[in-house]
Design a protein around this nucleic acid. Structure first.
Lengths: 140, 140
DNA sequence: CTCTGTGCAAAGCGTTTGCAAACGA
DNA sequence: TCGTTTGCAAACGCTTTGCACAGAG
């Protein structure tokens, strides 16, 4: 479990109750939308304002603490910054699962962009489909 | 150049002036945001309504004529449905360039998802960075 | 103590909706 | 002609902003 206070301070942000809780909820779920975060954190902190959530998410993305995960046809989710990986996005239940991105993919995309003189900065790989659970549910 | 009237009819949509022009502008640019489409088409059709653009884009995405391309931190762009490919997204000028996705990547992601019993439907690969033109501009 | 962060309420925008008129087939 | 599509204007809902107060360091 990450030390959120340390993480925030390292990014020049104060370790407030709101931020700590947002980070904790995001880490537990893996990926969350703004609404979902608000709904969860407001339970333990009823005075929480949605505006505060927005402000903090924007700030923490700018500072590199969080990463935005845009999803086709839906609202973005956010995750903690970590090693680059692949997202398996279930179009049934909306859940996002992480999978490690091996070096094959990495080298492949590095070489593709080098051919174009494109200075590669970030690889975003989203695989859309139906997760195991939803497949079972559909079969019945 | 695609036959837009045919494309629309094949999808069960009437070939209206608005739709033909939207498709033509999208094909010429490769990828466009809703606003950009409206700006361009309204020139040749001043009575065009933004609501019509929205309605049509939503409809054409549903029918599979268009594909949404979500972009981190920005509004989605739309492109004509074509063979799966990779997007090089320049964070400087916002331009999106297509690159063919070879079979190596394809097989890789197919096997990754099979391990998970995830029924893969669509591969979305966005590589963010700085295009050649913007690199030159930055250097000066 | 000082500066940052929070909450509230209002403002701002992008997007959607309903409906009458116009249009495509 | 008949069902679809358009344009307009209003409604909606998410996101942002300004400001006074509270809180972290």
């Amino acid at each position: 479990m990450t030390d959120y206070a340390l993480l925030l301070k390292a990014s020049g942000l104060k370790a407030t109750f709101q931020r700590m809780n947002l980070l904790e909820r995001i880490e537990v779920h893996g990926h969350m939308s703004i609404d979902a975060m608000y709904e969860e954190v407001v339970k333990s902190h009823p005075s929480l304002s949605l505006a505060t959530v927005y402000k903090n998410i924007i700030l923490m993305v700018e500072k590199g603490v969080l990463v935005e995960v845009p999803i086709t046809g839906k609202k973005s989710k956010y995750e903690l910054l970590k090693e680059e990986h692949i997202h398996l996005v279930c179009t049934g239940c909306g859940e996002v699962e992480d999978k490690p991105k091996d070096s094959i993919a990495d080298n492949l995309f590095t070489s593709i962009t080098q051919q174009e003189d494109f200075m590669l900065n970030k690889q975003e790989i989203n695989l859309y489909g139906t997760c195991k659970t939803c497949q079972v549910a559909l079969a019945s």
